[in-house]
């Protein structure tokens, strides 16, 4: 291939004699082309996406459960307080306070080096840590969304004889979902970018491979710029999807 001839020619020259353009091309070849290194970045991309999806699922499930517990606790009729719900509510409050009150990085290090220090699968430990972190933020977003739906909607549902869960499922949650989609989208974008922190506990994802390439070639600029562009493209795709979904959910607002 054309670049291989160029690469061999350039690497044969003494480094001091290289012009700016030549040195640029040489570094580019080393970062992406030599030894099919571009495949490593794609492999990293795969891990990053896998990590994001697992953390996302954990985050959504945890977030919705915590939000529903906290909202139903707050909406109980006076005199009909459920003690079990009180305990659950307390646990949920501790969870959101601790997670939102400590840095993501510190949490990941604790998961990786304290709680699961014997575990070999660092990527999955990272996914768990990210998911648990994301859950606390999602819970607050979802709770805000549930509270933003007019109480008259719940009353209308209940006055028709629907039970609490059906009222939530068919009436409140769909409306809340529409209201929170922008903030939820932001949370997911943050989550995608935060997967880069997993490299700190030895998890394999895009940053891990960029560092590996950089370590091997003693040249970090192109690997890091490369993954920066990849993150940017991923976020742009997510934002585009988010906008599309918002437009679809606004369907019932048309007049």
């Amino acid at each position: 291939m054309a670049w291989q001839a160029l690469y061999e020619q350039l690497s044969a020259l003494p480094v001091a004699d290289l012009t700016g353009t030549q040195s640029f091309l040489l570094k580019f070849c080393k970062a992406f082309l030599v030894g099919d290194r571009w495949k490593l970045y794609l492999q990293g991309l795969g891990y990053t996406l896998e990590l994001t999806v697992i953390a996302l699922v954990i985050g959504i499930v945890l977030g919705v459960v915590v939000a529903v517990i906290r909202t139903s606790h707050d909406q109980q009729r006076p005199g009909h307080r459920n003690p079990a719900l009180g305990v659950l509510n307390f646990v949920c409050k501790v969870y959101t306070t601790v997670i939102r009150g400590t840095p993501m990085m510190v949490q990941l290090l604790i998961w990786g080096f304290v709680i699961f220090k014997t575990c070999r699968n660092h990527t999955m430990v990272g996914a768990l840590g990210l998911g648990i972190n994301s859950g606390a933020y999602v819970a607050e977003i979802v709770r805000g969304g549930l509270m933003s739906v007019d109480i008259g909607q719940t009353e209308a549902g209940r006055s028709l004889g629907l039970n609490y869960l059906d009222t939530m499922r068919f009436i409140v949650i769909p409306q809340a979902f529409k209201n929170i989609l922008p903030s939820l989208g932001n949370e997911f974008i943050t989550l995608l970018k935060d997967t880069s922190l997993v490299s700190a506990i030895g998890g394999t994802e895009m940053v891990y491979f960029a560092q590996a390439v950089g370590g091997k070639t003693y040249e970090y600029m192109f690997p890091l710029l490369g993954i920066a562009v990849m993150y940017l493209i991923l976020v742009m795709i997510l934002s585009w999807l988010q906008g599309k979904m918002e437009r679809r959910l606004r369907q019932s607002d048309r007049r």
């Binding site: 008259g152 909607q153 068919f170 769909p174 529409k178």
Partner: peptide, 10 residues
């Protein structure tokens, strides 16, 4: 109800 409370999502 006074404010109808139809479900706007349906």
């Amino acid at each position: 109800f006074q404010h109808f409370n139809l479900f706007p999502n349906m």
